[in-house]
Design a protein around this nucleic acid. Sequence first.
DNA 1: AACAGAATGTGAGCACAACTCATGTCAATG
DNA 2: CATTGACATGAGTTGTGCTCACATTCTGTT
Lengths: 217, 217
Amino acid sequence: MAGQNSGPGRRRPVQQRSLERYQRLLDACAGLLDEVGATALTTKEVAHRAQVPIGTLYQFFAGKEDLLAALAGRNLDRYLERLDHRLLEEAPAGTAGFTDLAVDEFVAMKRAVPGFGQVDFGLAGATVPAGVRDDRHLLDTDLDNNTAVALRLQALGGELFATADPAALTLALRVALEAADAVLKLAFRSAPDGDPALIAECKRLVRCYLAEQLGPR
Amino acid sequence: MAGQNSGPGRRRPVQQRSLERYQRLLDACAGLLDEVGATALTTKEVAHRAQVPIGTLYQFFAGKEDLLAALAGRNLDRYLERLDHRLLEEAPAGTAGFTDLAVDEFVAMKRAVPGFGQVDFGLAGATVPAGVRDDRHLLDTDLDNNTAVALRLQALGGELFATADPAALTLALRVALEAADAVLKLAFRSAPDGDPALIAECKRLVRCYLAEQLGPR
DNA sequence: AACAGAATGTGAGCACAACTCATGTCAATG
DNA sequence: CATTGACATGAGTTGTGCTCACATTCTGTT
């Protein structure tokens, strides 16, 4: 169910061995992210950790930026997959229940998944290579991550979001997403496992906003 | 009224000529930010634009990171100053009015002030030099920008925020601040002058959250 | 005015990271 | 066995952040 959601890498590996190396590179990248942070991360060290020569890294990824984007894409796919499972298991009623689940799962991944705390979905990291203006302009690719994620969340929520105006709901989800991401980043800056008070406030913020959005009841 | 709020630079200039060069460096940095973005910005080019030798730049700023932090600090000082003026002039009643003013002024600066769109207050950019753990641990310095800004906003708001629990209000302001910043960043990623729909949603988000916070009335 | 010593200014050069590309490897086909 | 082309490799190129030995300017004392 999780679509391929990586950045515009160089060559997508098709053979078995290459695929393993590709994943190993992402794993090494994630591990290093937690240890040294995004700015201090070097492509040489990532390649070294993954036991892959530096040239091979650049066959799969256009550069450091693209490597991080690919990791963010994998994170997003995994998050949506896990959220989907929990929605089926726990079957919450109403948007408040959905919100709590979505936030809790996000927090769980921030704690457990290497690198997730540094890049999560890369929402704010559009970061066009600087100087070169964006020239891709088709479908999914040109709406930034934010809208793409909002649409996928909306699909997951399904009947929980009963509304007469789906476009307005998409807008609201984009806003809620960006806001929640920022507040949770703050929560994890304040405490290693996420400040509980800030996590609670994050839920309150989103619930309150979405409640006003669809049916003021 | 605006306190000195720059990063932990190297030497603070005291002489007249040095002060001018210091400001010129920040101006050049801001201009370049808008043209090439943060990652493509080079210290050499900043120094060249400011007509200042590269060595001098490194006397004032510990590095590129610190240069950007200093710009963010100047942005914050200017913002609070301008917001303060508008609060006195327009004297809004209630938190909703305060919110609208605060957001509008922020948007105005995003449009008008060079570099503001790239770094604003540097809320998320704590970015410890990577590898070295933070060793300053006194007063203002160790609570990140977020808390510092929230407290200053709280002071500006003054009697508008009548509450029995000031600490809870500070927490709410920190959350609102981080969320609003993220949503407005999104608004300016979507459209050069800021997507009006997203700006409106930002106000709605903050108003709704703060209304629930202090006096559910 | 003349001088000493401190403070500040300067830019060639160093260390190191991102990224390339000529060469090497190897499997499939004629 | 020879030919071909896809894929793998890491020494080398380019260019950035940053330093440091030396030059210049300022400040206070006699």
